[in-house]
Design a binder for these strands. Structure first.
Lengths: 245, 245
DNA sequence: CGAGTACTTGAAAGATCTCAAATTAGGTGG
DNA sequence: CCACCTAATTTGAGATCTTTCAAGTACTCG
């Protein structure tokens, strides 16, 4: 399974006409490369462009004043990032490449134009954004009053899930490509403590590690350890009428 | 200043024609009362309606399996809530009234119809949703690696800010109307610890309390205590063209 | 006035962080 | 291809923050 494109993501929640499909494709024509570890956009930069990830893996984070940072989400091919420029004309998150990546820069005017021309697509974008918001809300719930081991287990499960959906990984084995420090920034833990939790999960026969490769041995057990499991509802806009009724 | 209506909120970010204004008003015609402490919607309920808060104060939370809950946001008049039904056909958050409230139930088909008829309004709703997502992301950042006192200080500042904007409070004094347990659920702390942090803030001459009323004595100091301050960008869609160009 | 809920305070237990140092892995230039 | 250099991982011990448990006080509503 190849990495899903933006059109695929939108098409998955809403049947698209050929015209709509073409308009969407046109949106992601341009391409900009971002090297691993490089920052694409800095928080609070004034900007009117957003991005669609074409290949690779990126992350969105906010920097705390004490030098710490909170990773808000990991981004996979076909997903939008930096969409806050739409509403704010300014970036609200720092975007960093986790691995070498390619993004399609999109002017917010293009998005607006598209949404005005094809209102159904506008709604589809809203729905995708909402899905992202829901995911972040879930993460907030998971981070705040959950023990460390559960948080780490949850990130692993979520990463594998997303990597599967993006065709980057298959089966129970995957390569997060994150340092333990980064896992810590995503879970609100110290790198040192992340290390201990990974060890615990390994000793509990829930996962195995070789180099950078993780294998989930006991998925049921890992889910139990993660406590909060994704109730896995899917975004679906197929109920949308063709046109205003 | 009276409580802003939904039309006011949308109108604040985008100039509206009379037609658009009328269509928006029509959306919130119905009204349903929710008594303090009552649950309007339960997480995971199948449903195709969302709500606009007309008066009162509500909150959106997710329940954790250990009986704990995470409060994701507090909702004030003119704001939408339960919007996940749009994309999922199912509630993703539990909605509870903090004080006696009145909501306008809206069928998702109505929203879709509106957005298809008036694409600019569709974009405005997207922008409002995005603002909410940004706020939750900020909260995530603030909760995960921040000391308890800073979290409590931050909630107080945010509550005052929102209550001001909604005309519920003015000046430096306001009545959160939340139990310390609820503040704890919002910050990821125990009620006991919230109590101690409030005491600390009081002893540090940053706030004062009388009954349920809070007064911010030293705003600068409280902001410093809260560490992460809202960079306060405003949502603005005035750049939107009238129609697709 | 009584009962329940919220608030307050103390003391001890537990989780996570910090600091420090050793080991391993990865990448680069010779 | 090796040697080196830096970044990442691993492990231990003590410090710190937050929770838990317990008990007493204040408030509010019938």
């Amino acid at each position: 399974m190849p990495a899903p494109s933006f059109v695929d993501r939108v098409g998955a929640i809403l049947p698209l006409s050929d015209t709509e499909r073409a308009a969407l494709s046109k949106l992601t024509e341009r391409e900009r490369l971002v090297r691993r570890g490089t920052t694409l956009v800095n928080e609070n930069d004034r900007s009117t462009e957003l991005f669609v990830l074409k290949t690779g893996m990126m992350m969105a984070c906010v920097l705390l004043d004490d030098g710490n940072r909170q990773i808000l989400r990991f981004v996979f091919p076909g997903e939008m990032l930096g969409t806050a420029t739409l509403a704010y004309g300014q970036a609200r998150q720092t975007l960093v490449a986790v691995s070498d990546s390619a993004v399609a820069p999109v002017e917010r005017a293009q998005i607006a134009d598209l949404a005005l021309r094809y209102p159904r697509i506008g709604l589809a974008l809203t729905a995708l954004e909402q899905a992202e918001a829901t995911r972040i809300a879930e993460r907030l719930a998971g981070v705040s009053k959950t023990p460390a081991q559960a948080r780490v287990a949850a990130v692993l499960l979520e990463l594998r899930e997303q990597m599967r959906r993006s065709g980057v990984a298959s089966g129970d084995s995957f390569i997060p490509g994150l340092t333990q420090e980064e896992i810590g920034d995503a879970t609100g833990l110290t790198a040192v403590h992340v290390n201990r939790m990974l060890r615990q999960l390994e000793e509990g026969q829930l996962i195995r590690r070789n180099g950078g490769r993780f294998t989930i041995i006991d998925e049921r057990g890992l889910r139990r350890a993660a406590a909060r499991t994704d109730h896995g509802a899917a975004v679906d806009l197929s109920w949308l009428p063709e046109r205003a009724g």
